[in-house]
Design a binder for these strands. Structure first.
Lengths: 178, 178
DNA sequence: ATTTGCATGTAATCTGTTACATGATTCA
DNA sequence: TGAATCATGTAACAGATTACATGCAAAT
């Protein structure tokens, strides 16, 4: 499906970046729905360059350190636009180890189950606090055709997801304790 | 992390099964949070047998068709119990191509965005109807120490997740249309 | 008889993570 | 001057999907 390809093209469609900067984007902006390590990004960038979807210029940082500033090409832009316009069937399985554990948890003592759920709840609560803090940077709803708008929608989605997950965890705790 | 290993051990801890039956379980009961194709299950079963965590007897279906009925061993049971009792850090990234598309969707016409969101909403609504139908098989809340209890909790979680996802999609549609 | 489902496997490929490897720049 | 960060790459491995491959059993 080459999703990483389109994630990179989408980011380079916003502005030219180095591989390192792309990595930082995956760690921040896209973190809630996609990720990639530098060991995956650099080879993919090379491949995209071979395919003519991106190109780069070498810049010098300081005295000698070379960095490659990548830009999307017209072909790349066309390819990306085609992808983003596509409709898709929702993927069947968002794999989730914790839910798997809950599924099997009847073999455990109730105390331990509740402890695990509480632990999970704590972690997701702090995650939610972090997301809500990120939301502060928007004042009001961004303009519909700005990149900030997409940013806003997915952040809202992430917050709603965390909220809902916490709600589920609380219900599980309740049902385990009666 | 060997999650498939523990998913299989957990299922075999409930009852002895063939690889084919395990495959069916992954397609039904576990479908909301884990999946595996037969091409992954059969080699894993072989490996688990080599590791002494499961064993099997060959049964004959009809005249000649051999099937392997797998059972969990004591070692396997101990290993599984240790795993299910473990606490874990929530995984950072539940990758989601649709959210990635939404993130970049500002490059599209508003009409197309709304169309995509509506399409997604339709699919998730029917998915939710399907899940709610599954829930009917429970009358009331299952006993806390039965496998049905875990089953019930994750099904509830799946329904809540779908409900929440639909809510998010509706908000996205609203914000795109003003 | 033919189709659908039961039943088991391997091979090739793709995607992603961890570990290995190196070196420059900036800030305290 | 030492630590954190910038910057780029490769190699080995793990996990998972698609395709290849075969054959029996049951139901229509």
């Amino acid at each position: 499906m080459r999703t990483l390809k389109y994630a990179i093209l989408g980011l380079l469609n916003q502005r030219s970046m180095t591989g390192y900067e792309l990595m930082l984007e995956f760690e921040s902006a896209l973190n809630e729905f996609w990720s990639a390590k530098h060991s995956q990004i650099y080879p993919e960038l090379k491949r995209l360059a071979d395919e003519g979807l991106v190109d780069y210029v070498i810049e010098i940082s300081g005295k000698v350190l070379e960095k490659k500033l990548y830009s999307i090409t017209d072909t790349g832009k066309a390819d990306f636009l085609e992808w983003v316009a596509m409709s898709e069937e929702p993927k069947a399985t968002p794999k989730d180890v914790f839910r798997l554990r809950v599924f099997f948890s009847a073999v455990l003592d109730v105390d331990l189950r509740v402890q695990q759920l509480e632990d999970q709840l704590y972690q997701h609560k702090s995650r939610m606090a972090h997301l809500k803090n990120n939301q502060k940077k928007f004042d009001g709803i961004p303009e519909k055709n700005s990149q900030d708008f997409g940013d806003y929608l997915v952040l809202m989605g992430a917050i709603m997801r965390e909220e809902n997950h916490c709600k589920w965890l609380k219900k599980c705790i309740d049902l385990n304790m009666n």
